[in-house]
Amino acid sequence: MDTDQQALGHGFSAPETAAVYRAIFERRDMRHFSGGSVAPEQMQRLLKAAHHAPSVGFMQPWRFVRIGQTDLRQQLHALVDAERMQTARAMGEREDEFMRLKVEGVLSAAEVWVVALADGRERHVFGRRTMPQMDLASAACAIQNLWLAARAEGLGVGWVSMFDPAAVAALLQMPTGAEPMAVLCIGPVQQFYEEPMLQQERWASRCALDDLIYENSWGQPLLPALESGGR
């Protein structure tokens, strides 16, 4: 912990800080679930964590829809699978490789929730006048909060984004202007992947952090830290 932070007394204890970083580094986008259930009070904790995410202009654009009916979950799965087939065709030479990947756990997860952007978002202009997509960024923060809380509690989460938003909105009878952005599969897993699944399957690998950090202008490498006392 930084000495100044310790002096101010705002930092967490070393074990608490380590737990936060552990949740970040061991979070996985899960596709393999082991059924079971999530206790209602535990699910409420995850949703509360999501609801305490930051949002631009404090607009809180997230809405959560639980898919509790078996037939509704099956219809949702059919929409996801239809988009999986369309995505495969768009992959070109990687189509067969893509089709071998497991990309969702809608039918096997204990809980399935659809996260949507609320209707009436155009009213919120604070922080969005030139960047209207900040509603999406805010809702993504809510999902990340839920994801990290779930990992800390030993539950897997898979974010499924393969679906036609209009079709899912119609299925769930969303009002005009509301827009689904994620299908979250949540529940117990046999084990967490040692590394991100797509990296484990050699589909892609994590970029080197140094290649993604610039200083002062795009493409300009980060300057070495100034020597102590230097200017």
Rank of each mutant, 00 (worst) to 15 (best):
66 R>L: 11
69 Q>Y: 10
69 Q>T: 14
73 R>T: 04
75 Q>D: 14
76 L>C: 09
77 H>P: 02
79 L>I: 12
80 V>A: 10
82 A>T: 14
85 M>G: 10
89 R>L: 07
92 G>K: 02
93 E>R: 09
94 R>Y: 09
101 L>N: 05
103 V>T: 14
104 E>S: 15
104 E>H: 15
105 G>F: 02
106 V>D: 04
106 V>W: 05
113 W>P: 00
115 V>I: 15
119 D>M: 01
127 G>W: 10
128 R>E: 00
130 T>N: 12
131 M>R: 15
134 M>G: 06
135 D>R: 06
136 L>A: 09
138 S>T: 08
139 A>D: 09
142 A>P: 02
142 A>Q: 04
146 L>M: 10
148 L>C: 08
151 R>I: 02
151 R>D: 07
161 S>Q: 11
162 M>I: 01
167 A>C: 12
167 A>W: 06
169 A>Y: 03
170 A>I: 01
175 P>W: 02
179 E>T: 06
180 P>D: 12
182 A>S: 10
184 L>D: 01
184 L>H: 03
186 I>H: 01
186 I>L: 06
186 I>M: 02
188 P>W: 02
188 P>S: 07
189 V>W: 03
190 Q>S: 13
190 Q>A: 14
191 Q>L: 04
191 Q>A: 15
195 E>D: 09
196 P>M: 11
198 L>F: 15
200 Q>P: 06
205 S>E: 11
205 S>D: 14
